[in-house]
Simulated scan of single mutants.
Amino acid sequence: MVEATGSRVTQRREIGKRGVKVTGLSLGSAPLGGIYHDMPDAQAIATVDAAWDAGVRFFDTAPHYGHTKAEHRIGDALRRYPRDQYVLSTKVGRRYVPRTTPYDGSEGWQDPLPFQAIYDYTRDGILRSFEDSQQRLGIVDIDILLIHDIGRVTHGERNAHYWKQLTEGGGFRALDELRSSGAVKAVGLGVNEGAAILDAMADFDIDCALLAGRYTLLEQATLDDLLPACEARGVSILLGGAFNSGILARGVQGDLKFNYGAAPQEVIERVARLEAVCRVHGVPLAAAALQFPYAHPAVATVLTGARSVEELRENVASFERPIPAELWTALRDKGLLDLRATVPKD
């Protein structure tokens, strides 16, 4: 279900069949947790304020971001606004305890808080994590709860062990209890791989999934299986990572990160080709990157991170910018866009 408005940012789409409606553009909080670069508290709050002023009303966070820092900052910012006017999501799967070993920087967080994660997808672990998040946020009413980073990409051979915690250790049961009691309105996954979402859909009734990347101008393999399955089941995709960690934001002259690592040469070359087509049609690459995934009927919102008020406003402008239909036709003709992909229509 879609509520039409004059703004793509403020357009509302429903999450699954739960009555929760999110804005077209939403704010993710990994940058507020200090991914790659940290920021002062005042800058974090100003960025949330800029999102609010632009009409964004869905905010996502996680204990993992800055080792609980992002939840504190999002909570500090959002508690100043009427609770019934925004949608909030956070994640479970990691419990944070005081750090006993030095942080080695390998996760990319700059100046995280002094806590370390214990993976725990059991019923008790999820309920404990949920309560901890409520306290860090200073907000009791969390709308959407997502199982964070389950899957083979994160856990490798250990994934079977953690998946068993969900199916036999009561993890999925905890989500159902929270949803049935009204403690949360919708539940799902927050992952970097489509396979984990398909696995979850086979074992449990999820409402949504936050998918980082995997359906972008650079990646459309999820059209083979995941997106059709989501459409059939009424599972909403909250699409994060539309810039594939940065390379689609600035192009080949900008941040050459792709999916949290250094961009391989073939990706750089493909981005250069995408840029060239966008240039011919007078469209910034970032605008095409943000608007493309939102056209798919399974995608309820596009989550973007922002490090500053300026970046937030750039993202809003990119999401609202008119794009001629000829651009999408040209991308298809040059083999840069899957022929099955739904393209935006202004």
Rank of each mutant, 00 (worst) to 15 (best):
G282D: 14
Q116E: 10
V235D: 07
S318T: 01
F172C: 08
A62N: 02
R233C: 11
I150M: 13
Y260V: 00
G182W: 04
I118F: 03
I144W: 11
L227T: 13
I323E: 02
W163D: 09
I144F: 08
L27I: 00
Y81F: 04
L88T: 08
K164S: 13
D53E: 15
V20Y: 03
A276D: 10
V271I: 03
E326R: 06
G34V: 00
L189Y: 00
S7H: 05
L127S: 02
R83S: 12
A276W: 01
R18M: 13
T23R: 04
A186S: 12
A202N: 15
L339D: 10
A232F: 01
D203S: 14
D124R: 09
E320W: 01
L137A: 01
L137T: 09
G305K: 08
E310C: 02
L198C: 14
I323S: 01
F292Y: 08
A262H: 12
P322S: 02
D53L: 14
G19H: 13
R123G: 15
H67E: 08
V283A: 04
D149N: 00
F172G: 06
G156P: 06
Q85L: 14
L327N: 02
A62G: 01
V184G: 09
W52Q: 08
R80L: 11
S180K: 09
L217A: 00
S129G: 15
D203Q: 15
R214S: 06
A272S: 14
V309F: 07
P322C: 01
A4V: 10
K345G: 03
G282V: 03
I237N: 10
Y65E: 05
L274Q: 08
M201L: 15
A229M: 12
Q220S: 14
L226I: 07
R313W: 11
A183W: 02
D333L: 11
A51I: 14
N259G: 07
P322T: 05
G171Y: 10
G171A: 11
G108H: 10
R123C: 09
V20F: 02
Y103P: 00
E320A: 03
A160I: 09
L290W: 11
G16T: 12
Q291R: 14
K345H: 04
D203K: 15
D205W: 13
Y81S: 06
I237Q: 04
R79A: 14
A212K: 00
G151A: 08
A117E: 01
Q253D: 12
K257C: 14
L211Q: 13
L227D: 08
H67N: 12
R18T: 15
A196G: 05
E131A: 02
